[in-house]
Design a protein around this nucleic acid. Structure first.
Lengths: 139, 139
DNA sequence: GTAGATGCAAAGTATTTGCGACAAG
DNA sequence: CTTGTCGCAAATACTTTGCATCTAC
């Protein structure tokens, strides 16, 4: 398994405080893509004294340190997710808000090719698919 | 050539006012992807009495009517662009902010395939590439 | 004439920041 | 010790909205 967030902090020289440890743990335990407010709610259950300003400061710090990644899906607040080696993109159910993670190597390759064609080196990309569930015959 | 924004308003039953006509014209004349504030600045040069609230209301209305499309590129305000039949995605120069529009049919097809694989019908998507210009040997 | 549009200022969200108290290395 | 962090509240940035007035159709 890969490094924990705490290990990443150490290796990146990010000072560890109780608050950061809690935020790290909550993010690690989350399988969804919480926004800052969700995160604040969850963190508050563990330590009610943590302020939302600290949550904002911490996710920003973690993002800059390459520990978390920020998503700005349509029509909403910024949402965060732990960054692991396996890159993936998102398929969002527009009705339910459910998010499915997927990987498609072929699309990745084509993206590099497009950037290349225009004389660019790809440093980042964002691919979001928005869809509605197709009813199968038996429902 | 395709319909003008004014024609689109008529065919969609959107009432035309002086303000909307001006905003439509400014958007049509823009080759970049202005945010609401840019738009407000440009519109103000034509009619300084137009309020920013009207600009916000109008871009939202135009977006709902399928006349404009909204982008939320990294780290910033919402930006708008006229919606024409030819769909395209964006390659953003992370150093200069320059935006290149591109079309890649193959990527489009693969996106549909991915959605399909998970049992979804694609209703929308967002693909943004962020890159840095590659220096060619002679500069 | 009437429903809808506008301008203004006030209210909402989401996020950031100044500051004095406090804690990690 | 010293530098950076925290909590708090105030500030900021972007966007929306209530209301009285005005305008397109």
């Amino acid at each position: 398994m890969s490094e924990t967030i705490e290990e990443k902090c150490l290796s990146k020289g990010v000072k560890l405080t109780d608050q950061r440890r809690i935020i790290a743990k909550v993010m690690s335990d989350s399988t969804d893509h919480p926004d800052v407010d969700d995160l604040y709610q969850r963190v508050s259950k563990i330590d009610p004294k943590i302020s939302i300003a600290t949550v904002y400061r911490t996710v920003k710090l973690f993002e800059e340190s390459g520990i978390l990644t920020k998503h700005e899906f349509k029509g909403g607040k910024a949402r965060y997710e732990e960054l692991n080696e396996g890159h993936h993109d998102h398929l969002i159910d527009v009705k339910t808000g459910e998010i499915i993670e997927f990987v498609d190597e072929e699309i990745e390759k084509l993206q590099k090719k497009v950037a290349d064609k225009y004389g660019y080196k790809l440093v980042d990309h964002k691919l979001e698919l928005y869809g509605v569930k197709v009813k199968s015959k038996d429902e």
